[in-house]
């Protein structure tokens, strides 16, 4: 019992229960005006309050769908549909995920290369670093529609334009943390490498890269979440037909709140899954390095 209270299980579940109860209250408050309107048109005068609450929970097009409605929709559109079906969320998530991962891999590689260039060349440090920071103050997601229109006019369609946006968002955290990581060896360690007459490449491979690994994973965790956001936003413009972002866009066109919410929650689950995946890789790698017990 004591373990339960000192851990974070009970606090987290308390907060979750609190969130869900607010959600339900919100459902009742936001959906009841429409429901009262329905009663008025049907001529139902003496409805009970419990009747009203029950009906707000099962509207076809609610303003705020209650959690169980979203869960049912999630279940129906993942487990009860064939994966190849266009109404299956798994199908759409697969499309979003492929461009996320492609963009993330390119972005991470780019980030690592940039970080090595910045650490090894003072010119790169002074010229590139300020512009890399500036590049992130530009709201790239805002340019996403144009990038996609331009690239499709050039004949490049499908995965690459979306992956480009994911790359742009995910290279930055990797670069920043890799620069920090590559500079993390202490002077005494660098001196040691010098004593052994190691050249630049050897110092990079044997000292700087290994000691930057924890930083790399910290950057990659942020990067993969950003890549997912980039891929979703990349699907919004030009009325894309598939992908989680397209699901949200269609939902907003047809006023299908339940569809938007289920796509959103599914996207969040994927984000959590991706971040956990990176974390698992991080833990097993660090264990091999002997940095964790």
């Amino acid at each position: 019992m004591k373990v339960l209270f000192s851990g974070s299980l009970i606090p987290i579940s308390t907060v979750l229960i609190f969130i869900f109860s607010i959600w339900y209250v919100g459902t009742i408050l936001l959906n009841s005006p429409f429901q009262k309107d329905v009663y008025k048109r049907k001529g139902v005068e003496n409805y009970t309050y419990s009747q009203l609450v029950k009906d707000t929970m099962s509207q076809k097009r609610p303003v705020l769908p209650p959690p169980h409605q979203v869960l049912i929709e999630l279940w129906n559109s993942t487990v009860n549909k064939k994966i190849t079906s266009k109404r299956s969320l798994v199908y759409h998530a697969g499309i979003t995920l492929s461009s996320t991962l492609l963009g993330f891999v390119i972005g991470s590689l780019l980030g690592i290369i940039l970080a090595v260039a910045i650490v090894y060349s003072r010119t790169c440090d002074m010229t590139l670093m300020p512009w890399i920071i500036t590049s992130q103050t530009i709201p790239i997601l805002a340019i996403a529609p144009m990038i996609i229109v331009v690239l499709s006019a050039l004949g490049i369609q499908g995965l690459l334009p979306k992956a480009f946006i994911s790359t742009y968002l995910s290279f930055f955290p990797v670069t920043i943390s890799m620069v920090k990581g590559l500079r993390s060896p202490e002077t005494i360690e660098l001196d040691m490498m010098k004593t052994w007459n190691a050249n630049g490449l050897q110092t990079l491979l044997r000292l700087r890269l290994p000691s930057s690994v924890p930083f790399l994973f910290a950057g990659m965790k942020i990067g993969i979440a950003a890549a997912l956001v980039g891929a979703i936003i990349g699907e919004l413009p030009t009325g894309a037909v598939s992908g989680l972002g397209a699901r949200m866009l269609q939902g907003s066109y047809y006023g299908q709140m339940v569809q938007i919410w289920s796509a959103l929650i599914f996207a969040s689950l994927i984000a959590a899954l991706l971040v956990t995946m990176i974390d698992v890789i991080r833990l097993s790698t660090l264990k091999r390095f002997g940095q964790l017990n």
Binding site: S8, V229, A267
Partner: peptide
């Protein structure tokens, strides 16, 4: 509250929150 809210806050800050945009517009 720290133990309860922080993990959720950490999780939420990596979520694609921008997806609530259509909901807010409605």
């Amino acid at each position: 509250l720290q133990r309860g809210l922080l993990p959720i806050g950490n999780l939420m800050s990596v979520m694609p929150i921008v997806g609530i945009a259509p909901i807010m517009v409605m």
